[in-house]
Amino acid sequence: MSDILAAEGKEFHAPGMELFDWGPLFPGGPEWLTWLTKPVLIVALAVAVTAVFLVMAFRRPQLVPRGAQNVGEAAYVFVRDQMARPALGKDAERFMPFLFTTFLFILFMNYAGVIPVLQLPAPSHIAFAIVPAAVVYVMMLVLGIKHQGLGGYFKGVLFPPGLPKGIYVILTPIELISTFVLRPFTHAVRLFANMFAGHILLAFFATVGYWFLIEKLTPAGFGVGVLGFLMTIVMTGFELFIQSLQAFIFTVLTASYIAGSLHAEH
């Protein structure tokens, strides 16, 4: 295997962290433009696409939906019935604007990973996963304090009613760390890790296909190259699924965190 890989001096290199190193988009450009890297561009595009899509869909709503309004309404009903209502119940409509735009924004950021030319899911940089998670975290705290009062909220979270008295000493630290430290952490990392791993996976198979079929076409490596090419196609489909799933999960978790701060647990 490795003598195929090391054919003729130049070796096959699996893609690594350099996949995520993006310098400024215009390397020779002016100083004030250095912040514009590819991930930033993708996030800006995702914002633009979300805004344009929603304006197109709901600018002039008609009783019999046509075109973009059809898609928009289907998406809205999906988000409301599958994500908002199971968690929030009758409060779902109040938070639908936030949940719906969050869902579409994350979805478009993720889909950038399989769209040709872009081909980089923005949340594969952890910063772009942390910011939405941090927004949700702050929202969770503010809503909790607003709806249940400062003492009531923290008491409800740290000392859930219905447990034996002595247990609190042991379990409250776990509860504290779990809710206020690990919850936003896992919320962000779940999205980030899936996008990161998916991007590396796709890049690996694509590199294998390119290397063995175009760069170093040998009879021994041909089969490997074809396998890499086919796996690239299969994995692109799989990534499409994972990207939708992660956007879904992110929104479901958002809804469930908000629901947790609106009402004390019983």
Binding site: A87, G89, S178, T179, L182, R183, T186, S256, E265
Partner: peptide, 23 residues
Amino acid sequence: FNDRDHRAFASAVWSVPSYLLSG
């Protein structure tokens, strides 16, 4: 939509890993 058990379950499923990690 009004089933409190379902709601508790939905939030509990996702909090299990963070409970374990924080423990």
